[in-house]
Design a protein around this nucleic acid. Structure first.
Lengths: 157, 157
DNA sequence: TCTGAAACCCTGTGCAA
DNA sequence: TTGCACAGGGTTTCAGA
């Protein structure tokens, strides 16, 4: 039986907490933070990477600083819930660069997207040119986030 | 006048694209990717960090692999839109570790949260013990994400 | 602001416990 | 699985263009 989740001990959890905040921490720094030798940290981090717990490392960019200050949440309803309709939509939506995230929601053929855009003109463009043109899309409803209150670095491990 | 966003040239954009996917890339790797010497990359990356474009580096963790497979979107309505009510709520919500993100939405005193939880029991606990207990909260409505369709590494730079 | 070189520090392997 | 030590490679500073 394939395991859905990986067993982590308290060293692993400490390392993960550190690496979520400081993804470029050196093994020296990790060793000091978790009380383990550098090579032990190296081996554990490698194992976490190989197990897929750590998928990648990323620079976290301030969206406002790069001129993308608007996060917009969009609900999309499809005309059909047939498997084929869903996967066609998912394939199409994956190519839209402004879609930061897309989730299939419970209770019907509804998707929730987070769009990252420059301004309302940009939003209108993505809405009209990209979203509503995808076959099967019946309804598109947008709500703008005025402000980001919390963007947590660490998961509740 | 304070600038809202920073001017980026094509080297900066290339570096940012690379660092969003490979946050631990070496300066050697960056140099090869953008066609600049290592020390030039170092200087540019430092500048991006200091300008706040790069806020931090993070290990990107697979939420399912660590036993947190449920993303739940929650809409919260407050009884009052008074400044004080909003900041009291925001202060309280920031302490809830399961809240991965929280946005103040347009059009009223509505917040949108993304919760990261283990299972429905965990969701119920957070809902009943944490969210509905915050003073001023009138309505809390949850929708579960069945599947993550897109989680894009790169912003549309 | 760039490149290239030099010094230093970190990474990663081998080995013993 | 850990810690230690060593070799190789990466990071960072500095000089010159």
């Amino acid at each position: 039986m394939k395991k859905a989740s990986v067993d982590l001990d308290s060293f692993d959890r400490k390392l993960l907490r550190l690496l979520q905040r400081r993804g470029r921490a050196s093994y020296v720094e990790m060793g000091e933070a978790v009380n383990l030798s550098e090579s032990a940290c190296l081996r554990r981090v490698r194992a976490l990477e190989e197990a897929g717990v750590i998928g990648r490392y990323a620079a976290v960019i301030d969206e406002r600083a790069v001129g993308l200050p608007l996060s917009v949440f969009v609900t999309v309803t499809l005309s059909s819930q047939a498997e084929a309709a869903l996967s066609a939509f998912e394939k199409a939506i994956a190519t839209v660069r402004e879609v930061a995230e897309c989730y299939l929601m419970t209770g019907g053929s509804d998707y929730l997207l987070r769009l990252v855009v420059r301004d309302v003109d940009d939003l209108e463009r993505v809405h009209a040119q990209e979203l509503t043109r995808i076959p099967g899309v019946v309804r598109v409803s947008s709500s703008i986030a005025m402000r980001t209150v919390v963007k947590r670095a660490e998961l509740p491990l």
